[in-house]
Design a binder for these strands. Structure first.
Lengths: 354, 354
DNA sequence: GTTAGCACTCAAACGCATAGAGTGCTAACA
DNA sequence: TGTTAGCACTCTATGCGTTTGAGTGCTAAC
């Protein structure tokens, strides 16, 4: 069956009305809208067709229609491909824009705090739940290592990666080192390792570092372990969430067991990586993904939709942002907000880095 | 009216039965218990007295009795003062004990991770929600500062406090420093400030540091700001929570609005400090506090009870742990678990530190 | 192709009766 | 004097049939 223009309009009307009310939409409601001046009967005929096409359903016989996942997919795909249709993206004085600038004007140095704030702002603006992964460092390089004696047989190793990611590690070395030895170790490690990615730190290099460390070879090994740990994915991939309680606003999600499962996933954070998907290597700058209902790869989110985007932070460092909302979420607003945020981040991180 | 032994027993029976079922307890239920061989009528008389004393109430005329806050307070005070009655505290092979040792055997260096794990273990063991504040550093002293050049006009200041608390700060200094200058600054800062508490860093000292820094005085000031920031309460007081979804298990809390408010407070973490109360300066080692219902100083927790304890981490560093549960929580188990955990922490942090 | 009309369906709301748990009170009993 | 059996009473929760109303599909007329 053909999806002509009128059918498309009716589908859109159903989607928008259902977005606002959360209630199934009847033919009368549609017929009263200004740009669809047909009688309820006509609308009903069209709606029967749309149902046959699998784009809408009735929860029960005497109810109005609700968009299906397939219906939403059609709508969302249309949103994402036809740029002109509605996606003004980064333009215009949007709320997130002003908020963002305010929050970034503080020049936060710590990436984590900025990401947390970003999650909070997005959650507040969209009224949905937001999750943000910390940046991926895998492609990153070692900027420098700084060892300092802490006393009590402990050594502080500060490891700095490109993109100004700082990691602390307290190493238990069981003995005290004098300043000179420390200086030697520092120099040896830095001259051998600086500027390398974790893959480039290979066996010959490790052997060389160990040789140079002489009797302190075991300490050097511990430092190298710490370096590997600093690059470690598991550890360097914190996920920040915000606005978890926003889901309480949508009655269709208000089932206690479901909500408990969902909040549990948000608290444990383990599964969120799955929900956000993998960062596509060198994907297009603004690759926005929309997962609708059953498409969401996390069991307890199958009643929701998730919109994800990849953010860039200069130096090739990138991460993911995700918005979790009900299936009837305002996809247009969410996509626009995400695009605007991505653009802003791009702008901010291009200036000071290059 | 006198609270004789039989009345006390009946109160206890009501409390325990209500703990298990969450339903109001009737006279018949009590009379069937082995150690209270009286007819329901007798029990009813006693219950009427207990109600008159304000220790129990009926939700409605034809319902059983439920303990009041006052009834719980009596019970809890009795628990906490009469040590023999039931509080075996740290002894015995409790679940938390074995868990704790497992998790601490990993020798986690990072305090935060340990605290998070502790929250998780406690939440899992008690089936309630747990919150843990990071340690207070106010009384703490500066161990050393390490400045390193990061390039791009940025300086990395690593600030280490007593108790091996490490704070990173990236400072924007707008120029590059050579190694020698950096060494001077490092030396000057450390020789002047090491071993001092934040209160001891006073104006004369600051002037001296600035003088020694010469033309780099403004950089020194920035470092000092960072030091102050590292001591800052707001910043050094993260709160970790775990088991938020455990509250869904207790039907009396299952009101959607209440639960939303509660989870919101747990997510925002701002009010949790209030709930946990202030660390008493040099208070008794195991000062366990129980807040019952309306006694809880946070609005959205007034349907809950909160049990808090102060933990010690050597070097005078201490923080708070809190367990949030329904009013009918198992106070005995919670208090015992907390005492056991405190004792373990004491044991662990005394060994390696002294 | 569009629309008025109408019979039909079904969830939600409502009213009402019933069951059952639990109480307080009184009177009898040890 | 303390304990208990008996009984009337209260109030919630449950179940059930009815009503209401929103919305549909279909048919026939325009």
């Amino acid at each position: 069956m053909e999806l002509d223009d009128r059918k498309r309009k009716i589908l859109l009307a159903i989607i928008q009305n259902y977005q606002d009310t959360g209630e199934p939409v009847g033919s009368r409601t549609i017929s009263k809208m200004n740009d669809l001046n047909y009688s309820p009967a006509t609308i009903r005929n069209e709606m029967a067709d749309l149902e046959e096409m699998g784009l809408i359903v009735q929860p029960h016989t005497s109810a109005g229609r609700v968009p299906t996942d397939k219906g939403y997919r059609l709508y969302v795909d249309h949103l994402l491909t036809n740029e002109e249709t509605g996606l003004t993206a980064a333009e215009g004085p949007q709320l997130p824009a002003t908020h963002m600038e305010q929050l970034l004007s503080k020049r936060m140095d710590r990436v984590e705090e900025m990401l947390m704030r970003m999650a909070q702002v997005l959650a507040a603006n969209t009224q949905y739940t937001t999750m943000v992964t910390g940046p991926h460092y895998k492609q990153n390089k070692l900027k420098f290592i700084q060892l300092s004696a802490m006393g009590g047989g402990k050594l502080l190793a500060v490891i700095v990666l490109n993109g100004n990611i700082v990691k602390n590690n307290i190493l238990d070395i069981g003995c005290e080192l004098d300043q000179e030895t420390l200086g030697h170790l520092n120099f040896s490690l830095n001259s051998n390792l600086n500027g390398l990615s974790v893959e480039e730190i290979n066996l010959p290099l490790i052997t060389k570092v160990k040789e140079e460390a002489g009797e302190y070879a075991d300490i050097a090994v511990k430092v190298l372990d710490a370096v590997a740990g600093a690059f470690d994915k598991e550890d360097s991939m914190p996920v920040y969430t915000s606005g978890a309680t926003n889901i309480f606003k949508y009655p269709e999600l208000a089932d206690n067991e479901k909500i408990s499962n969902l909040i549990n996933v948000l608290e444990e954070k383990k599964e969120l990586g799955t929900a956000l998907g993998v960062v596509s290597p060198d994907g297009s700058k603004q690759d926005i993904q929309v997962y609708i209902g059953d498409e969401v790869p996390v069991e307890s989110m199958k009643d929701c939709s998730v919109v994800t985007a990849t953010y860039q932070m200069g130096d090739g460092v990138q991460g993911k942002i995700g918005i979790i909302g009900p299936r009837r979420m305002d996809y247009q607003k969410v996509v626009e907000t995400l695009k605007a945020t991505m653009n802003q981040l791009d702008g901010i991180f291009k200036k000071p880095e290059e």
